[in-house]
Every structure is written in structure tokens, then in C-alpha cells.
């Protein structure tokens, strides 16, 4: 399953993998915010952030094809947002699509391109973070930034039991197919409802049993863990370097945007 491949990648031992997850999280957030505030033109503005994120991916030693394939998954959503803009944002007409009577406007096209590029850059940055950081370390970083405990703990359990849930849903589906492959749409809809109900019940059962197992080991409502994050010198060095690279992003924007 894909999230297990990601997990294997994230368990690597490279220099980027070993960075403090808080440092990586802050860097990626700053990068995404910086890129998203860049003006639409000129497109050359995006060169610098592209260099930043690509070199980050390179240093992390992530397999290029895998990163690409993961990115393509998100592409349809970005495309959906960007597809109609060239026809709707005026006023400078560029050309008319023959036969369709659709006008492509320059402003719309620029905006559309910028959205695509910004989306791609942000996505690559997030992939860099997720593919180099074990999920539980990411959660530790979120906790350090005061994300509510209940959210972090929920995510942790979700991640832990995702496989079992998926397994179970597969088994239930297979059992149904074995009993009656095909069937009318009406029947399939009805039995899907039953399937979801059964999965939910099993998930609740599991939750009950896990809770019991926690209580049996002295759980009193507070999750206590061993790991604590520690900043090392490399983390500080990385933060300063990344900070310098990132500060250049809005400055470029200011220069190009003539004041904004």
C-alpha cells in the first residue's frame, strides 16, 4: 500500500531525514506561504523557489519517479481549478479557439499558469517533508506547535490502524462478491450500506479493545511518550540557510511587483 511505501522512504537515514521535524515543518510552511504570495507575472519569479525545492529533493535523495507519480495524483484537482481561468479572466484577448467561439485571455492564461506552478511547488515541498519524516515525528512537531493533543493522538491512531481497516474493508467486499458477484444496482447499493455499517461496527469494536488494552497498562486519559525532540547544531544551520533562501522569495516578489 502506498502509505507504507512512503513510510519506508521516510524511515531513511539521510541528513535531511535526520533533521528536526519542527525545522522541516516551519521551512515548508514558510516556503508555501512565500510562494503563494508571489505575483502572477513574470513567470521567471518562480525560478528561484523551483531551484530551492528541487535542490532540497535532490539532497534528500528521494526517488525522482516516485515523487513524480505521487504528484500526478493531485494534478486533476489543480487542473480543475486552473482549466477554466483562461476563458473567463479578461480583458486582453489572445486568440479564439476555432469552432468553439471561446476566447482565450492573456490575464486568465497567466493566472492559470501561475496557479499550476504555485501548486506544483507547494506540493513538491510538502512531499519533501512527508517523504523524509516518519509520521510520528511529524506528529511530534505538530504537538510542539500546539496543535491540540486530541487531533494529534487521533491522527496517530488513524495511521496505526489504517491498514487493518483497509484489510477489513477488502475482506468484507470480497465476501460479498463471493456470495453474489454483480447483482442489480439496487441490491448493490443496499448491500454497500450494510458493508459500511459492518465496517463501522468493527472499527468501534477495535476502538473498544484498544481502549481496554490502554487502560490495562495504566492509561488515565493522558498519553505519555518517550520521544522528545532535540535541536542539534545541524538543525540550526539548516534553519539559517533555509531562512536566507526563503527570505529571497518575497523580496523577489516585491521587486517584481513594484511595491506589493
Amino acid at each position: 500500500m502506498h502509505h507504507r511505501t512512503v513510510e519506508q522512504l521516510a524511515a531513511g537515514a539521510g541528513p535531511i531525514h535526520r533533521l528536526d521535524p519542527r525545522v522541516k515543518l516551519v521551512t515548508v510552511l514558510a516556503f508555501v506561504v512565500g510562494v503563494s504570495t508571489l505575483p502572477v507575472v513574470p513567470l521567471t519569479l518562480f525560478l528561484w523557489p523551483a531551484v530551492l525545492v528541487l535542490s532540497a529533493l535532490l539532497v534528500a535523495g528521494l526517488p525522482f519517479l516516485f515523487v513524480l507519480s505521487r504528484s500526478l495524483l493531485v494534478l486533476p484537482f489543480v487542473l480543475m481549478v486552473a482549466m477554466f481561468l483562461p476563458f473567463t479572466r479578461g480583458p486582453t484577448p489572445l486568440w479564439v479557439l476555432p469552432g468553439l467561439e471561446l476566447t482565450v485571455y492573456q490575464e486568465g492564461l497567466q493566472l492559470s499558469l501561475a496557479i499550476l506552478i504555485k501548486g506544483a511547488l507547494a506540493l513538491l515541498a510538502v512531499e519533501w517533508l512527508v517523504f523524509t519524516t516518519p509520521f510520528h515525528r511529524l506528529l511530534l512537531a505538530m504537538r510542539a506547535f500546539r496543535v491540540p493533543r486530541v487531533i494529534v493522538v487521533t491522527l496517530s491512531f488513524l495511521f496505526r490502524y489504517l491498514d487493518l481497516l483497509a484489510d477489513q474493508s477488502q475482506r468484507v467486499r470480497r465476501a460479498r462478491m463471493a456470495r453474489a458477484p454483480g447483482g442489480t444496482v439496487r441490491w448493490r447499493l443496499r448491500s454497500t450500506g450494510g458493508m459500511i455499517g459492518r465496517l463501522l461496527l468493527r472499527a468501534l469494536d477495535r476502538a473498544d479493545r484498544v481502549h481496554q488494552a490502554m487502560l490495562a497498562r495504566g492509561f488515565d486519559g493522558e498519553i505519555r511518550i518517550l520521544s522528545c525532540l532535540q535541536m542539534r547544531r545541524v538543525d540550526v544551520v539548516f534553519l539559517v540557510g533555509a531562512g536566507a533562501g526563503l527570505v529571497a522569495v518575497p523580496i523577489l516578489g516585491l521587486v517584481a511587483g513594484g511595491g506589493l
Binding site: 516518519p134 509520521f135 510520528h136 506528529l139 496517530s156 491512531f157 495511521f159 496505526r160 490502524y161 487493518l164 477495535r206 479493545r209 484498544v210 481496554q212 488494552a213 490502554m214 497498562r217 495504566g218 492509561f219 488515565d220 505519555r224 511518550i225 518517550l226 520521544s227
Partner: peptide, 19 residues
């Protein structure tokens, strides 16, 4: 599976002692 709910085995084995 019900008893191994933490992200790593070491965290799991430390859960009781910490509590």
C-alpha cells in the same frame, strides 16, 4: 494488534512504565 497502538515498539513497551 489491540495492544500495540503506539507508533514504535519502544514507545509501546514504555507506555505502561510511563503511566
Amino acid at each position: 494488534e489491540d495492544q500495540l497502538f503506539m507508533p514504535t515498539l519502544e514507545e509501546d513497551a514504555a507506555f505502561g512504565p510511563l503511566n
